[in-house]
Design a protein around this nucleic acid. Structure first.
Lengths: 247, 247
DNA sequence: GATGCTATTGAGTGTGCGACCAATAAGCAA
DNA sequence: TTGCTTATTGGTCGCACACTCAATAGCATC
């Protein structure tokens, strides 16, 4: 009896529900930030009650780490797919830079920044960040090593080269996120340019299709050489929502 | 009457008090993070009541921005002093890299990371971050421009070179803060190496005193040389406290 | 030594957070 | 259909936060 209507319940298998929760949290993390992963916010997203989230993740910190791991893993998968390499390592890297310096990567770079900062206070997240760094480094150095084997690249230490490349990308990300828009191509060019230097490639070898203007005048002082062959992969534009204030 | 002892009050001039508050907030920002700048925390630091902080900063967000600006300005001042240049631009840059890639810069790089992330949610801080970026960029490009005038450096666009250098430094900072310690010298070398390339300098020209091994062989494919000796410019060790959980 | 200005306090408001738990209903198995 | 397991709910607790404001006391001035 009584007027209080009982809420309709949808009962799902723990595995499904758990995956659903992590998915929602990853989405919130990408669009609004890791701090916005709260019991109430995720519950609202899934149209369930906060208690349910607590049931699956007794400590929210674990959900935060899981959400970051999920998002980062997914991004790495589209960034450097491990499966059938349909192109040369050089083409792979060119696509890699095209995406990481493009708008499609904005959310992800914000998330990396977010995770790096937050991992200062949250040990579980911190470990996840270290894991992801390892994965990204491993995947990238793998591509590089393959390139070296094929004689496309020349470097003594693929891992070191990978780390340096990732460092530059993160640096660009940090700056891009603060400014209103992205950096001009002359700045983002730094990423590919670093890679070219690390891998013994000619200037412009890893240039983004769009930036194919006058290669050689741009980079530094070098009057270069090779024309950048156009690798044909343009990243899709991600749907982004306005941010929310977490405090 | 009554047993409740009244708290002893120390009355100071608004200017002094305000400066004191900003100073305390800057210290907390550097050691514990911008999120730890709360009315209670800063009040405790100064042994006053929270209400007093509110009195000087009706919106905490303003204090946060002020604290960041204060800390960043101070750091820039020791990093690239504007006054009497006692050395050549090249020496200036070498010291710049020695410090930015050393342990004395740890707190500051964490703070930059912190501020960049937090500025996503706090407009006032965001503006401050942009201001500081402008200052740092201007100061660094100034040194570079001087070097160009003197024929020490060679670059088409000092500002572009400055931005690229700062991007690399921030990238290193982000990675260093996540990992347990700092990166090995082979990675941090990336910063000076980028600058050398941007400025048309020979490899190793900006190397840290310690890393001054075999200039010219080091940068990319070559095995790095010297073991770290005692650097001439040794930064003071900052007193660091264990972190607190801001939420 | 008295007076007035104001820097500082103490007490309180409302909000959002994670965490906890007994009660409840969904849906599978008998 | 009946019963049982358990996924899900609703409600509550305590804490930390920013912010407000009348009351109070330090101190310069007279």
């Amino acid at each position: 009896m009584t007027s209080s209507v009982q809420r309709k319940r949808v009962r799902k298998s723990p595995d499904d529900r758990r995956a659903e929760i992590v998915g929602a949290a990853a989405e919130v993390a990408l669009t609004e930030g890791l701090e916005c992963i709260t019991l109430r916010r995720i519950a609202e997203q899934l149209d369930v009650r906060p208690g349910l989230i607590s049931h699956y993740f007794p400590a929210v910190e674990d959900l935060v780490a899981e959400a970051f791991g999920s998002a980062a893993t997914a991004e790495l998968e589209t960034l450097l797919p491990v499966g059938p390499r349909d192109g040369s390592p050089q083409e792979h890297l060119a696509r890699f830079f095209a995406r990481t310096t493009g708008p499609a990567y904005d959310d992800m770079s914000r998330l990396w920044l977010n995770a790096r900062h937050l991992s200062r206070y949250r040990p579980v997240l911190r470990d996840r960040v270290l894991d992801q760094e390892k994965d990204w480094r491993g995947r990238l150095s793998g591509v590089i090593a393959t390139g070296v084997e094929r004689g496309e690249f020349r470097t003594e230490d693929p891992v070191l080269a990978a780390v340096r490349i990732l460092v530059v990308i993160d640096g660009l990300a940090g700056h891009a996120n603060t400014g209103l828009g992205n950096h001009p191509a002359t700045v983002t060019r730094l990423a590919a340019a670093t890679a070219e230097r690390e891998l013994g490639l000619p200037d412009g070898a890893l240039a983004t299709p769009a930036a194919t203007g006058e290669p050689g005048t741009a980079t530094t002082l070098a009057p270069p050489a090779a024309e950048p062959a156009a690798p044909a992969v343009e990243p899709e534009a991600p749907a982004t929502e306005p941010d929310a204030e977490p405090s």
